[in-house]
Amino acid sequence: MSSILTCKNLSKSFGSKKALDNISFNIERGRIVGLLGPNGSGKSTFIKLCNDLLTPTSGELQIAGNVPGVETKKIVSYLPERTYLNDWMKVSEIIQMFKDFYQDFNSEKAYDMLKRLDINPSERLKTLSKGTKEKVQLILVMSREAQLYLLDEPIGGVDPAARDYILDTIISNYQENATVIISTHLISDVEKILDDIIFLKNGQVVLQKTVDDIREENGKSVDALFREVFKC
């Protein structure tokens, strides 16, 4: 099967600082991939490059055979690490907006999840708490039937009880052929749903493996391996 995402010698610098330094890897379809690394390792930079929010300094990046742009935005569903909701719409209006702009958006799914999370669709975004806003964003992102989901710190701001629900939402809402990339440093929480991991350190890939291989070859959990690799 063809890769959903390939990058070759990809670098991104901000001034003299290298945020990503010559990284190369492929990500296959149908996988849940953990993009793991400490703060400042280049996780968000990579995800922003995939979303055309940044332009690479050098190297190549392709999603389903296209460089990031209008075509890839149609098939990539992105959850940024901050809230991007405006303060004047109602929940139902932003759902309508997603439906207007993304052909793969399934509003039924969105309303269903809102109901389960007890969020009132006629509520204004402005009046929602920070945690609820994050849930609304996750609902918007997961209600798309996308080919690639890019989730930047999806569980960072919510309480542990909501984390489990969010992870359940992620695994129960993507189709077989779709790929999910989750960037996080809260490894023990996401470990159980991951198929593959990519460790990033100082802008470089230090390890790319399947979780099964890690358990077999290293005889330890991803969390334990992470602590070993990134020991201070």
Partner: peptide, 17 residues
């Protein structure tokens, strides 16, 4: 605010040039 602030994360990931 809408393009260069936080809302830009939504606006610039819409499939629009």
């Amino acid at each position: 605010k809408n393009l260069l602030g936080d809302e830009g994360y939504l606006m610039f990931t819409l499939p629009v040039q």
